[in-house]
Design a binder for these strands. Sequence first.
DNA 1: CTACGATATGAAATCAATATCACATTGTTC
DNA 2: GAACAATGTGATATTGATTTCATATCGTAG
Lengths: 330, 330
Amino acid sequence: MNISEFAREAGVSVSAVSRYFNNGYLSEDKKQKIKEALERTGYTPSYSARAVRSKVTKLIGVILPKLSSESISRVTEGISQVLGAEGFELLLVNTANDYNREISSLELFRQNRVDGVIFLASVFTDLHRSLLSKMRIPVIIVGQELKGYNCVCHNDEGAAYSMTKLMLSKGAKRPAFIGANPDDKAAGMDRRNGFDRAVKEAGLTVDPKFCEIAKFSMESGYEKAKRLFSYKQKPDCVFCATDNIAAGAMLYLREQSIRVPEDVMIGGVGDSRFDKVLYVSLSSAHLHYKTAGIEGAKMLLSEMKNSSEVHRILQLEYEIIERGSTDRQP
Amino acid sequence: MNISEFAREAGVSVSAVSRYFNNGYLSEDKKQKIKEALERTGYTPSYSARAVRSKVTKLIGVILPKLSSESISRVTEGISQVLGAEGFELLLVNTANDYNREISSLELFRQNRVDGVIFLASVFTDLHRSLLSKMRIPVIIVGQELKGYNCVCHNDEGAAYSMTKLMLSKGAKRPAFIGANPDDKAAGMDRRNGFDRAVKEAGLTVDPKFCEIAKFSMESGYEKAKRLFSYKQKPDCVFCATDNIAAGAMLYLREQSIRVPEDVMIGGVGDSRFDKVLYVSLSSAHLHYKTAGIEGAKMLLSEMKNSSEVHRILQLEYEIIERGSTDRQP
DNA sequence: CTACGATATGAAATCAATATCACATTGTTC
DNA sequence: GAACAATGTGATATTGATTTCATATCGTAG
């Protein structure tokens, strides 16, 4: 059933029906007629047709590298909460860490498919930048900082610094690092820098072979820990860029009967839900993932209301949660 | 830029442009002209306008109770993988376990907003049933079985039965149960029934106070375990309907220095990623969540191609993964 | 009493696409 | 060489909504 058929059924004009759904001038009499016909027929206007004329889709594009990750689903939960309350639906694209799909999603959204975009990026290439600059709808970047764009990010450097400092303050002298791809500025580069700063500040140096780059998985953390503990001289603390990596590392340590925290301390970032139930509970820098989603969504809403030329970068702070894996006397 | 402006730019007719994007009859000559103009102008057709006329949105509605759950995100990952490859986008609605939002999402999708729906339901009310019967587009239900609809579900009863049987076969005599809301047929009712069947088969009975109903969270598992272990006579094995519940229960047991598996065995369902790194690794019935998403998506695709009157119910099997929490001699 | 703004109305134009239709052109079969 | 199918073409109708526009009504200020 379309609007004209419905208008005839309700005994009003097409314009009246349109006004009913769009807060235009309309007499109480007609409002009543339409309301009754609505219940009788179950008519609902077509979103597509509305979008053609009014350019409003009530859809927000969300681009993310994967779904089955606790941090990402927490961010998405926050986004969904705020935008859902405002009557927006989420058009989700899972790029499976494939740059090409990130690019093609941005292309897709550049058309009149969505009213705004939230981009959970991992790595920025020149192609990303060039495409982002061409976007004619508001875009918010969450989890990364990119100059010239609206971003919500975490203090990754600070979180890594504080977590590492905590372990060094308990007397560790041979710090090791299992990090992420440095092309990922937030999780890769910034957390590495935070680790380095804490080490330097403590007057120590890091043996280059004590630095490993892992994938974002437990399995990879396990493998990298195996490498780190294959040397004669072993590390006495390991900073892991994510809790998944840390959990994998701890799995290896348990298998090898290397004691945590007695022989080696472990610190992570993310404060995953499972951290406290690990065989030794994991100390971790809590990042406000859901808040990032909420703030990103709010930023997008405000940007859609009146797009401003000024670009805001909101950096969320962290919280060090100390648990068993660093529980040593200084 | 719209199709007529672009057609003028390319030096062809509007029809030719439309045919270019829709595999109609078109000479190589014009195809070339359009391809060139496409690169020059960056024109892309409007999805909304296309949807008005052709009734195809290339959108699939996905309704889910929450995002930040490992099982759900694994299902969604599978859905996204299959449908993404076929050029569909996912319109995600996170209902936050709110029945009203489930209903309103179905209402929303009943219009011409999406081409098909995948519904990760938890509970079915009469309102659900009545609304589902009115849907004019294909709907696939994942994770639950509902007669008269296309479903992909798990053998929840069997998984619970086998997991419980495993513990009883190791000599447990006082089994306890921490389950989910029985209105949730799959996770609540079926898993309860499987537990009951195993207990009965072993010639045992369950003390009614040894049966608790938890929410789907670690915190709730913790609370219910506290109750279970507050009685003088304590259980010697606990079957938990989900791994989150099991993890919460184990957290309480560790705090109380109740040994797993010596004093009490624990079994879960779901085989969450963190199961093997718990302080005692958790035995669990592995369910094929991602496969469920994949199969659900495939079923939807086939249903969209040619809707059949016959309704299929695909039940996926489980796998018992034995780990430390049940590691006892019979 | 006129002028004016606020409210109310419906016909018709518009949005950006696809579907239909009538009509060429070419190739193949009898 | 006529008949017919397959391929190719563009003008125009159509899709289902919103927006514009011209116009009507009414209360009130001057």
